[in-house]
C-alpha cells in the first residue's frame, strides 16, 4: 500500500484529476449557497442575453442565469454518479463475489447472463432499460447503473477467484470460518483495490451516458439544470445564442476528464505491470 501511494503522488495526472474532481465536489457542496440566484427563476425580458458582468455565462431562452444553473447542476452530476455507480457496485459486486466464491451452477448461470449482456454497448443497454422503465432522471440513474452491472460482476468475480486460492483464505476456512465470514472479512477486504479502480473509471462513463440521455430527452427533464439536458436548448438557439453551447459542455468535459485522469493514475499505481500509455 505504501509503495502504491508513493507511485501515485509522483504522477502528475493524479494531481490534475484530483484537483478537477475536488473542484467539482467543492462547487457541489458550497456553490449553491454562494450563488444567490434561483436556477429555475425565469425572466422573459432577460432572455438569451450574452455573457455580461451581471450574467457571467449569459442567460437561456427563459432568461434563466446559466452560471447559476451550471453550479446547481454540479449536485445533480455528483448524485447521478454516486447513485448509478452505487447500483453497479452493489448488484454487480454481489453477483461477482457469489459467482466466484460459490462456483458451480450459480457461477455458470450468472456468468452466462453477464457474457450475453457484455456483447452489447452499455449505452444501448441503458436505452433498452429506459424503454421499459420510461424516461426521467431517476430511471436514467437506474438504467446507467444496471447497464454497468455485467462489467462489475466480471471484474469482481475474477478478483475473487484470484484471492480465493490464497493461503490465508484456506487458513480461515480451516479454522472454521463460515462462508459469509470468509467472504466479508477475507475476500471483501482483499479485492478492494481493483474495485476502487473500477469505480473511479465507471464514474466518467456513467456521467457521459447520463448527459447523452439527458440531451436526447430521455434523462433529466426540463427544467432540471442537468448539464446534458441544458444543451438541448443550446442546439435550438445555436445561431442566436452560441454561448449556451460552451458552459455545460466544458463543465462535462472537465468533470469527466478529472475522473478519467484519477482512474488511470490509480490503475497504473495499483498494477504497475499493466501500464497504459
Amino acid at each position: 500500500m505504501k509503495g502504491t501511494l508513493g507511485r501515485l503522488i509522483r504522477v502528475p495526472s493524479f494531481w490534475i484529476g484530483a484537483v478537477l474532481v475536488g473542484l467539482l465536489v467543492l462547487v457541489a457542496l458550497v456553490g449553491p449557497a454562494l450563488t444567490p440566484g434561483d436556477p429555475y427563476a425565469m425572466n422573459v425580458r432577460q432572455r438569451l442575453q450574452p455573457p455580461s458582468p451581471e450574467h457571467w455565462l449569459g442567460t437561456d431562452e427563459f432568461g434563466r442565469d446559466v452560471f447559476t444553473r451550471i453550479v446547481h447542476g454540479s449536485r445533480l452530476t455528483l448524485r447521478i454518479g454516486f447513485v448509478s455507480v452505487g447500483i453497479a457496485l452493489v448488484v454487480g459486486g454481489l453477483m461477482g463475489v457469489l459467482a466466484g466464491f460459490l462456483g458451480g451452477w450459480f457461477d455458470v448461470v450468472v456468468m452466462g447472463l453477464v457474457d450475453v449482456l457484455l456483447a452489447f454497448p452499455a449505452i444501448l443497454l441503458a436505452l433498452a432499460i429506459i424503454a421499459v422503465l420510461g424516461p426521467g432522471l431517476t430511471n436514467t440513474m437506474i438504467a446507467v447503473g444496471i447497464a454497468a452491472v455485467p462489467g462489475f460482476a466480471r471484474v469482481v468475480r475474477a478478483a475473487t477467484l484470484d484471492v480465493k486460492e490464497r493461503v490465508f483464505v484456506e487458513a480461515a476456512r480451516a479454522l472454521g470460518g463460515s462462508s459469509a465470514h470468509v467472504m466479508r472479512r477475507h475476500i471483501g477486504t482483499n479485492i478492494v483495490s481493483p474495485v476502487v479502480v473500477l469505480v473511479t473509471l465507471q464514474f466518467p462513463i456513467a456521467l457521459l451516458s447520463s448527459a447523452a440521455l439527458g440531451f436526447v430527452g430521455l434523462g433529466a427533464q426540463p427544467p432540471e439544470p442537468e448539464w446534458g439536458a441544458m444543451l438541448v436548448s443550446a442546439r435550438d438557439y445555436l445561431r442566436r445564442a452560441p454561448w449556451l453551447v460552451n458552459a455545460p459542455g466544458i463543465a462535462i468535459v472537465l468533470t469527466v476528464l478529472g475522473f478519467n485522469l484519477l482512474g488511470n493514475a490509480l490503475r497504473d499505481a495499483y498494477d504497475p505491470t499493466q501500464r497504459h500509455a
Binding site: A211, F215, L238, G249, L257, N260
Partner: peptide, 14 residues
C-alpha cells in the same frame, strides 16, 4: 485523453 472525456453530442454541436 481529451477525446475520451468529450461527450460526442457536444462535439457534434461544436
Amino acid at each position: 485523453t481529451l477525446g475520451l472525456s468529450v461527450p460526442a453530442f457536444w462535439l457534434g454541436l461544436i
